[in-house]
Design a protein around this nucleic acid. Structure first.
Length: 287
DNA sequence: AAGAGGCCCTGATAGC
DNA sequence: TGCTATCAGGGCCTCT
């Protein structure tokens, strides 16, 4: 499901809700996520107080007072639901489950606070939760990942150096998390449309100006997507149940066969599989 | 050693 | 109202 903008939207509403709150109880219904949940998972969370919720790339990070962290990756289909207690009901337990936005199946993990709980739902179970003991381990955990698009380290010098002695298509490079972290399949297509570069182009053929445009467009598209609340396709929703709006701004994603949205371009949007994933681009203005 | 491809898993949709 | 095939926004592993 989610790329960096969607994860950031989840982070924002989660942070607003659980900052400075103490976890009362944890319910685990299914430990078999992509990474099997550790045996002491519950113990590590129960009675611990949250300082804040942060994020790196597509990973959510719940920060706790004693210096531990719980990282959450949503995989392809993970969603987080904030469920408030229905004050009209006197039933202690069932009164949490009357939210129409809560799916019936695959609610694997619940983290319970005083008068609300957060529920992790994930049909495909490509997501995971992981406890990280301290700051050093947290750094290590993300050490294989490249900078985020907004990071000033993501610049022309870095770009040129990284692509040296490599040969792949630019679309492949953009979703390579070792190069830049947070961009996934949707935004890669949107970014390349924005800077008018063909996703099939080999990186060794990119000139300086094109590299600069890719950097700039990556920043712009992701920031715009965050401002619009992420993209709601399939099942993505803000934990409070509201939808994002960036999907209405898609210029190429899932628009194959339709005409190019660029003013004065007569092109048609093409869908092509690049390394096993759908890629969309204009056959005219992206060269 | 970089890169291509397969695989983890379930659900929605298309086509018969 | 049934099947079966294909595809889906991620990331890791293996083979070459």
């Amino acid at each position: 499901m989610p790329e960096l903008p969607e994860v950031e939207i989840v982070r924002q509403s989660l942070d607003k809700k659980i900052r400075q709150k103490k976890v009362k109880k944890v319910i685990v219904r299914n430990r078999n996520l992509r990474i099997k949940l550790s045996n002491n998972f519950k113990k590590n969370l129960e009675n611990k107080k949250v300082t804040k919720v942060s994020r790196f790339s597509k990973y959510l990070i719940i920060n706790f007072y004693e210096g531990k962290f719980c990282i959450i990756h949503l995989g392809m289909s993970g969603t987080i639901h904030l469920i408030k207690k229905d004050l009209k009901s006197n039933f202690t337990n069932l009164s949490f489950y009357n939210s129409p936005s809560l799916p019936k199946k695959h609610n694997h993990i619940e983290i319970i606070f005083d008068d609300f709980r957060i529920i992790y739902n994930d049909p495909r179970r490509f997501g995971f939760f992981q406890i990280i003991k301290n700051n050093i381990d947290l750094k290590k955990r993300f050490s294989h990942l490249g900078p985020e698009p907004f990071d000033k380290k993501f610049n022309l010098i870095f770009f040129k150096k990284f692509i040296k002695a490599r040969n792949k298509k630019i679309k492949d490079l953009l979703i390579d998390q070792k190069f830049v972290s947070g961009i996934g399949n949707i935004y890669a297509s949107e970014i390349l449309f924005h800077c008018k570069i063909n996703p099939n182009k080999k990186i060794k053929l990119l000139n300086k100006d094109e590299c600069s445009r890719i950097i700039l467009s990556s920043k712009k598209i992701l920031i715009k997507a965050i401002k619009k609340g992420g993209s709601s396709i399939r099942d993505f929703k803000n934990p409070d149940g509201s939808s994002g709006g960036f999907q209405d701004s898609f210029k190429v994603y899932q628009r194959d066969g339709l005409s190019c949205k660029r003013i004065s371009c007569e092109g048609i949007i093409i869908k092509k599989i690049i390394s096993n994933r759908s890629t969309f681009f204009c056959n005219t203005c992206q060269n």
